[in-house]
Each structure stands twice: as structure tokens, then as C-alpha cells.
């Protein structure tokens, strides 16, 4: 069962709770495959996506999930609205609550913002990515995808490669896969791995070849050019040479290793176009599963009595 008002992070969930969320996403995927992609479940419920950062992928995914469930979806972005006028997150949350929001999906550049919002409103809050903290729905859809492909998560070797320092996806996946019994390896340059990352239970690598050896799942993170300007790595050419996924390196992993990417990809930098488009990559599958996972969450969090 899922007994919380909100979904803020994976770290504080148990393996049973994660398993239950993934189980609930299964039936939702069946709905997405129908011709008429709609169930009446959340009629009369209002889902607000409050995005202080741009994200076509995540926002669209939540919006579709809400619509497939017959909820009313309202979008508010940081550039429009009172947000730009400097209204505090607390006040924005209270206003949305007064407008009748049942679920608020928050994307925010600062870690912990969803926690603050969740404390401020009775509406359920779903963290759609907060700073470098967590992106729990991304991890759930990643785990859902891997579970579907591999039949389970326990015992798998999962390599997460790239800018772990700034990656909320990496953090959520480290917690999620570790809890589900997988071995998680993180790999990147020392300047892009966060302090004390080994205390999360992940194994730390700086050599990509070593990190990939025998891996069942390879998760490539997006490298952002601005990190170079911040002096965190010398340049994309050297980065691609050290941490880019190519055919030779892919051959070091397990024969049936899955290649994942939370998107958007830098083809030719962290991943070659050939691999991104190969049948080893489940990147598009991740997108579909994202909608199913978000439908499951909207369903579980928008119940009248589910709020404490």
C-alpha cells in the first residue's frame, strides 16, 4: 500500500512501497495501449502542474496521465503568472489549493521545494524534479521499464554514468534500484560525483570500462555544456572520450544490457547515435512507461480518503 499524502522522494520509501507503485502502473499501461485512452477515474479532480523549470517531457507526461484519467489538468509555469512577480512558493501553493487543486505536480530548480509545498497545502504534492535532489517519477518509470524487460530488479547490475553531482535522476535511481536489491555503480569524473556518494550504497568508479563490466542496465546522464563553463570538466571532446557510450564499451556490459537515458540526449557526446537508435536502447519505451507510472501516482494520491 501507499500511505503517504505526497510523493517527494524515493529515499524514504520501502521496497514494498516501490513494488506496489510499480504494480499499480501495470494496469495503467494497458489503458495507454487502448484505442480509447481514457478512464473516468479522476473525473472532477484537478491536477495542477506547477513548473518553475522547462520540461516538455515530464510536463507532457503528467498532463497526458491526468487526461487519460479524466482529471482536469491546469498548467502553470514559472515564466507566466504570479510566480514571475515574486510570489512565494508558500503563497502560490495556498492559492492553488483555494482554486481546488487536488494534486500539485511541482518541478523546481531548488532542492527541497516540494517538501516546503507539501507542508504548506493539503493537496497531494508530486515531486517532478527538484534541483539536484530527486526525480522520483523518473526513477519509478526506469525501474518499471527494467522490471518489464528483465522480469525483476534484484541482483541486476546498474551503471549510472555521467554528471551524478547535478543529477536528481541519478539520486532517485540509486535509492530505488538499491532498495530493490540491485547493485548500483556510479561513474564519472571526480568533479562530477557528489561528496560522500558512496554512503548512498552505490559503488564509485572513475573508469567507464570498469563500471560497465557485466552491467545489465546502463543509464547515461545528460552532460550540460554550462558545467564546462563552471570549470567542472575540461571539455566535451575529452568527456566523450572518457565517458561516452560507444559500441566497444557496450560490448563490455552483459550481452542483453539495456541502455537508458532520461533525456534529452546529447547524441555523440554521452551516447553515440547508433546506440541511441539501436534495439538495446529502451529510451522511447521509457517515455510510454512514464505516463503509466504517473497515472498510477495520480490515482493513488488523489483519493478522497488517502490524505492523512
Amino acid at each position: 500500500m501507499y500511505k503517504y499524502k505526497d510523493l517527494l522522494e524515493i529515499r524514504t520509501l520501502s521496497a514494498e512501497e516501490i513494488g506496489f507503485l510499480l504494480d499499480t502502473a501495470g494496469p495503467m499501461k494497458e489503458i495507454i495501449k487502448r484505442q480509447i485512452k481514457k478512464v473516468p477515474t479522476l473525473r472532477g479532480k484537478t491536477v495542477v502542474t506547477l513548473f518553475y523549470e522547462n520540461s516538455t517531457r515530464t510536463r507532457g507526461s503528467f498532463e497526458l496521465a491526468a487526461k487519460y484519467m479524466s482529471a482536469d489538468a491546469i498548467n502553470i509555469s514559472g515564466s507566466s503568472s504570479s510566480v514571475a512577480k515574486g510570489e512565494s512558493l508558500y503563497d502560490t501553493g495556498r492559492t492553488l489549493q483555494s482554486l481546488g487543486a487536488d494534486v500539485i505536480v511541482l518541478r523546481h530548480p531548488m532542492a527541497g521545494a516540494p517538501e516546503l509545498l507539501a507542508r504548506s497545502v493539503q493537496a497531494a504534492v508530486i515531486n517532478a524534479g527538484d534541483g539536484a535532489h530527486e526525480h522520483p517519477t523518473q526513477a519509478l518509470l526506469d525501474m518499471f521499464t527494467v522490471r518489464e524487460k528483465k522480469g525483476g530488479l534484484a541482483g541486476l547490475r546498474v551503471a549510472i554514468v555521467g554528471d551524478v553531482l547535478h543529477s536528481r535522476v541519478a539520486r532517485s535511481n540509486i535509492w530505488g534500484f538499491t532498495k530493490m536489491g540491485a547493485e548500483v555503480r556510479v561513474c564519472g569524473p571526480a568533479t562530477l560525483l557528489p561528496a560522500g556518494v558512496e554512503e548512498t550504497g552505490a559503488l564509485v568508479f572513475h573508469q567507464l570500462d570498469q563500471a560497465l563490466a557485466g552491467a545489465d542496465v546502463i543509464m547515461m546522464l545528460r552532460i550540460q555544456k554550462e558545467r564546462q563553463q563552471q570549470g567542472l570538466f575540461p571539455g566535451l571532446r575529452e568527456y566523450a572520450r572518457l565517458y561516452g557510450l560507444n559500441e566497444r564499451r557496450l560490448a563490455l556490459a552483459a550481452g542483453d544490457a539495456l541502455v537508458m537515458h532520461p533525456g534529452p540526449m546529447n547524441r555523440g557526446v554521452e551516447i553515440t547515435a547508433a546506440i541511441a537508435d539501436s534495439n538495446r536502447a529502451v529510451i522511447e519505451e521509457q517515455v510510454t512507461n512514464g505516463v503509466a507510472v504517473r497515472m498510477a501516482l495520480l490515482y493513488l494520491l488523489s483519493g478522497g480518503g488517502a490524505q492523512a
Binding site: 532542492a111 557528489p194 556518494v197
Partner: peptide
């Protein structure tokens, strides 16, 4: 403080 807990919370650390 820069350390494992800042990493957990995703907050920028002061070494």
C-alpha cells in the same frame, strides 16, 4: 556542509 547528507538532499555543499 559538503558531505554525504548534502548529497542526499541535493543541496550545494560548503566544504
Amino acid at each position: 556542509h559538503e558531505g554525504a547528507y548534502a548529497t542526499v538532499l541535493g543541496l550545494k555543499g560548503i566544504p
